[in-house]
Simulated assay, not measured.
Amino acid sequence: MGRLTGGDPSLLRRINSAVVLRALRGTDEPPTLTLTDLAHATGLSRPTVEGVVEGLADAGLVAEDTQGGGDARRGRPARRFRFCSEAGHLLGVEIGPHRVAAVLADLTGRTTSTMARPVAEDAEAGRRLEHVRTLVADLLRRAGVARTSLRAVGVGSPGIVEADGRVRLGTALPGWTGLPLGDRLRRSFRCPVLVENDANAAALAEHWKGAAAGSDDVVFVLAGLSPGAGSLIGGRLHRGFGGAAGEIGALHLLGREATPERLLSTTGEPLHPLDEEAVARVFELAREGDLRATEAVGRFIRRLVHDVAALVLALDPELVVVGGWASGLDGVLDPLRHELERYCLRPPRVALSELGEAAVATGALRLAVDHLEERLFAVEGTTVGG
C-alpha cells in the first residue's frame, strides 16, 4: 500500500465509510436512520453520506429499511437505512474438559442460536476437536446458516495460548500442550479463527454482558480443575508478555501441592472424578453440616483466596468475578469477601458470574465481534467490508 496523505481520496472514503457504518451499526440495537440523520450523526454533508451509503449497500452491509416509516417530506416518507446484521455470522466456541459449546450470532453480536454437548474428560485432542467440528456443523445446520456466512470464529480453551493459537502449555486436557489449535481449527473454516485462554475469554464476556459490565478493572476467577484468572486493566484484556497472566493454578507448583482434588476430599483420598457434580456434592454436604465436607470447603476457599489475593494485590481491581464451579455453589461469596478483606490493602467488590457456564463461549464470541469491528471500522488497509 502506498503512502497516504491527508488529501488521499481513498483514505477519506474509508474514514467516511467507517464513520457512517459505526452510526448505523450502533452499540446495541442497530437503528434505522435517514440520510439527514446520518449527516447530523457523522458531521458529513448529505451528498457525501449518500455516496457512502450507496457504496456500503453495494458491499452488502447497508440496506434500505422498507418497513420503517420516517418523517414525511414533500408528501413522501424519508428513505431510511439500516445495518445488515444478517449479512454474515459470528461464532464463539468453548472447548472444555467436560463439554464443548458454541454460540452463533449475527454481525452485531446478537445471539441467534446455541448448542452444547458433553465430552469425555479423557478424550484425546483429535477426538475432542472432532466433537467441536460436529457440534458446529449441527448448529449451523439447525440454524440454516451456511459455513461460508461465517466472518470470524472465536475459541476459548484451557491453557497458555500464544498469539497464533498454539497452546504452549495445557494440562487440563489430554494432548493439549503444544497443540497448534488455531491451525487445526482454521482447516474447518474459511474465515479468521481467534483462540484465547478460557478465563481470559470469560473475563471479556462478563465485561460485555455480565457482572463486570460498567467496570473496567476486573479480575475474573475461573474455579475449575486448576484455577485460572483473566484480568481487564482499563477495559483491555491483560495477557502478559507470553500469554500466561492469571495462571494462578500454577501456585501449587511452588511448593504448595494442594491440588483441588485433595483440597475437596472428604475421605483422605483424592476426589475422583473431579467434576462439577462431585464438587457440588461436597458443598451440599457442608451445608447439611457434614464436618469433613465443611473442612474440605474451608480448604478450597482458603486456597482460592490465596490465589486471588495475589492478583488483587498486584492489580488493585475494582471487581472480582467468580465463575466456573464456584459460580453455582452457594456460600462462596461471603467467605471470599471476608478473607480478601484480611489479605488485601483495598478489598475489591466480589460478585458471582452472571453468565455461568455460558461465559467462555460468550467471551469467544466477543473475540469474533472485536475482530469484525476492527475490519469494519478500519481506515488503513483494505476497504470497509472487504
Results as ranks from 00 to 15, higher is better:
D37N: 13
V52P: 06
G60R: 00
G75M: 11
D65A: 13
P47T: 03
G70N: 06
R79W: 06
G43Y: 07
V53K: 00
A57E: 13
A63S: 14
H40R: 15
V52R: 01
T32C: 13
R46D: 14
R79A: 12
A39K: 01
A57H: 02
A59T: 00
E54V: 01
G69R: 07
E54W: 02
H40A: 15
L44T: 02
G68T: 07
G68S: 13
L33R: 06
A78E: 14
D71W: 09
R80F: 00
S85A: 15
S45T: 09
T36S: 14
T32L: 01
T34I: 05
G70L: 02
R80V: 00
E64R: 15
P47Y: 05
G51P: 02
A59G: 08
G75A: 09
S45G: 12
F83D: 14
F81G: 01
A59I: 00
E50D: 09
A59E: 03
T32E: 14
L35T: 14
R46S: 07
T66R: 13
P31K: 08
G70P: 07
A39E: 15
Q67K: 03
H40W: 07
C84A: 15
L35K: 10
G43V: 12
L61A: 12
V53M: 00
G55E: 02
A57T: 08
H40P: 05
A57K: 01
P47H: 05
G43A: 11
F81V: 00
L38I: 10
A63T: 05
G60E: 05
R74H: 11
V53P: 00
S45I: 00
R80K: 11
